[in-house]
Simulated scan of single mutants.
Amino acid sequence: MKTLLRNLLLVGMLACGLGACEKPVDTAPTPKVYKVGMNAAFAPFGSIDTSGKIVGFDVDIMQAVADQAGIKIVWVNTPWEGIFTTLANADIDIIASGVTITDERKQSMLFSDPYFEAKQVILVSPGKNIGSPDDLKQANRVGVTAGTSADTIMQKMLGKNSNALVRFESLPLLLTEVDNGGVDAAVGDNGAVANHLKFNKDKGFKLIESDKFEKEYYGIAVRPVDTALMAKINSGLKAVHANGSYDKIYASYFAK
């Protein structure tokens, strides 16, 4: 009997030595973390705070959408001039960065339902005699951010190769030039320009709105093949509208 028991113990020890007694391996797949591209130089939609964190309206909206859609995201600060190529090359999975939905962009990207209504406005430097979009045709220097809706509109108005049209890599560089009087006026999205004006009320700038500038809409973008991901994003976007989260976030940035 003792011999039999000893043999059974030896068999058990040998089995454990061969791995039979190891804990079961968790084979559940690790949830994908989607990389969200953001040009963090477009306050209040996206910027870097004093701690180095990306913050802004688009950040809060996209995070709320992700929470409702059940997806995990991480932010990647991406220069505007290369953000669409970065998406196409799969270095990021999503763009949430004040991207205007256009027919041209729809050819290479899949857009969500609109999440923000925008319009171009003119920020006029102090002392400049500009009161309407037509006055920009006589201006010496009109600034825009390269590759934006404002750039496209001003190319049509002033001419693609006009010496009066000055392009900047980012909105902060453009607005700094306005502050310094380096351009007569800047053309840009209403939310971003109004945000700059809010913190510079004493500098004598003039904000011009015009019906000649059509309404535009921002959308969240993914690659055309990522239809399942876009379905989740649109579902999440509908949910944040339905539960009141969108209105609360909007009011925290744009309440008058």
Score class of each variant (00 low, 15 high):
Met1Glu: 11
Lys2Gln: 10
Leu5Lys: 15
Leu5Arg: 12
Arg6Ile: 13
Leu8Glu: 13
Leu10Glu: 10
Gly12Met: 15
Gly12Ala: 14
Met13Cys: 07
Cys16Trp: 08
Gly17Lys: 00
Leu18His: 08
Leu18Glu: 03
Ala20Gln: 13
Pro24Val: 05
Asp26Thr: 04
Thr27Met: 09
Pro29Tyr: 01
Lys35Met: 06
Val36Met: 00
Ala40Lys: 01
Ala41Ile: 10
Ala43Arg: 11
Ala43Val: 09
Phe45Glu: 10
Ser51Tyr: 11
Ser51Asn: 12
Gly56Pro: 07
Gly56Ser: 11
Phe57Thr: 09
Asp60Ser: 05
Gln63Gly: 00
Gln63Tyr: 01
Ala64Gly: 08
Val65Met: 00
Gly70Cys: 03
Ile71Thr: 02
Ile71Glu: 02
Lys72His: 05
Val74Ile: 14
Val74Cys: 07
Val74Pro: 06
Asn77Tyr: 10
Pro79Gly: 13
Pro79Ala: 07
Phe84Thr: 07
Thr86Phe: 04
Thr86Lys: 10
Leu87Gly: 01
Ala88Asp: 08
Asn89Ala: 15
Thr100Phe: 07
Thr100Val: 13
Ile101Cys: 03
Arg105Cys: 02
Lys106Tyr: 07
Gln107Gly: 09
Met109Asp: 10
Leu110Ile: 04
Leu110Lys: 13
Lys119Leu: 08
Leu123Lys: 06
Asn129Arg: 15
Asn129Lys: 15
Ser132Tyr: 01
Ser132Leu: 09
Asp134Ala: 14
Asp134Leu: 11
Asp134Thr: 10
Gln138Met: 13
Gln138Pro: 01
Asn140Leu: 02
Thr145Trp: 12
Ala146Ile: 11
Gly147Val: 08
Asp151Trp: 13
Lys160Pro: 02
Asn161Ile: 07
Asn161Tyr: 10
Ser162Leu: 01
Asn163Val: 01
Phe168Gly: 07
Ser170His: 12
Ser170Glu: 14
Leu171Ile: 15
Leu173Lys: 15
Leu174Cys: 07
Thr176Ser: 11
Asn180Cys: 09
Asn180Met: 15
Ala186Leu: 01
Val187Lys: 03
Val187Pro: 02
Gly188Leu: 04
Gly191Phe: 08
His196Gly: 05
Leu197Ile: 11
Lys198Gly: 02
Phe199Thr: 13
Lys203Ser: 03
Phe205Gln: 04
Ser210Met: 14
Lys212Cys: 09
Phe213His: 06
Phe213Met: 15
Phe213Ala: 05
Phe213Pro: 06
Lys215Met: 07
Lys215Phe: 06
Glu216Phe: 07
Gly219Tyr: 00
Gly219Pro: 01
Gly219Val: 13
Ile220Arg: 02
Ile220Gln: 04
Val225Pro: 00
Leu229Phe: 03
Ser235Pro: 08
Ser235Ala: 14
Val240Arg: 03
His241Phe: 12
Gly244Leu: 05
Tyr246Trp: 00
Asp247Lys: 03
Ala251Thr: 02
Phe254Lys: 12
Phe254Arg: 09
Ala255Trp: 05
